[in-house]
């Protein structure tokens, strides 16, 4: 459903992505792993066209989206959940969710997974009690949940999740893992950028490993989880 070929990206004069190619299939949860600075977040941002200087071919649902703007990409059904919980802290929970709202999509003629606030509250129960709370007054874990829920309001077909386990309590990381498993059950595809291999192991089918902006390994998540040599070399475990 998502096919990426030869992605390149630059920050100023510095090139950070050196043509990784990868794909995500229907209903798959795929991990994009690597050390800090390996290019994981950059890859997700480049897919969303949030990095001005980039090149390469990105196809989503057999359409070339390489030259589209971020909002057009989002409207095609690619949802993006940023790192560091970028919620709108002046807005309430309900308002945050409203910003993410988009029409229900269809995939192959059938309605794709779609979300209402009520349905989201079953996956993220702690958000149910605080629709009128401002983002600024939520705990980090609650904010993390809201970021994911907000993107789901756009009824995406594929979600790009940027390091959802970073900097949150272990108990929240577990809740996040459960949420991702739920999404998979709903039929959503997920591309997950992650450093925590234990977390990735819980939710992912396949994995790609980046190092210095290049693709160094790819295969089944289960294989990566047992391949200590690769973990040591590429993930500094």
């Amino acid at each position: 459903m998502l096919e990426v070929e030869g992605l390149k990206a630059w920050y100023g004069a510095a090139q950070v992505l050196f043509e990784p190619s990868f794909h995500v299939g229907h209903g798959e949860v795929v991990a994009l792993m690597g050390r800090n600075g390996a290019g994981k977040s950059t890859t997700l941002k480049a897919l969303m066209a949030l990095i001005p200087q980039r090149s390469g071919r990105v196809r989503f649902l057999d359409e070339d989206i390489s030259d589209l703007k971020p909002f057009q990409i989002a409207r095609r059904g690619l949802g993006f959940v940023p790192e560091d919980r970028r919620i709108f802290s002046d807005l309430t929970v309900a308002e945050n969710l409203d910003i993410g709202r988009q029409p229900v999509r269809h995939l192959d003629g059938r309605p794709a997974p779609s979300w209402t606030m009520e349905k989201l509250f079953t996956i993220f129960p702690n958000l149910r009690d605080m629709p009128d709370r401002r983002g600024a007054h939520m705990s980090g874990g609650e904010q993390q949940m809201l970021t994911v829920a907000r993107t789901l309001m756009g009824n995406p077909l594929l979600v790009l999740l940027d390091e959802p386990s970073e900097g949150v309590a272990p108990v929240i990381v577990e809740q996040m893992a459960n949420a991702i498993v739920e999404l998979k059950k709903e039929g959503l595809s997920v591309l997950l950028s992650e450093q925590n291999i234990h977390f990735a192991e819980l939710v992912c089918d396949r994995a790609y490993v980046l190092e210095k902006g290049q693709l160094q390994w790819h295969g089944r998540m289960a294989d990566l989880a047992t391949d200590v040599a690769v973990q040591r070399r590429l993930l500094s475990v």
Binding site: S165, A169, P170, V171, V173, E174, A177, N196, H198, L202
Partner: peptide, 12 residues
């Protein structure tokens, strides 16, 4: 465990 660590599945 209840408020923070959880079941301990995401770390060693």
């Amino acid at each position: 465990q209840q408020v923070y660590l959880g079941a301990g599945r995401t770390f060693r």
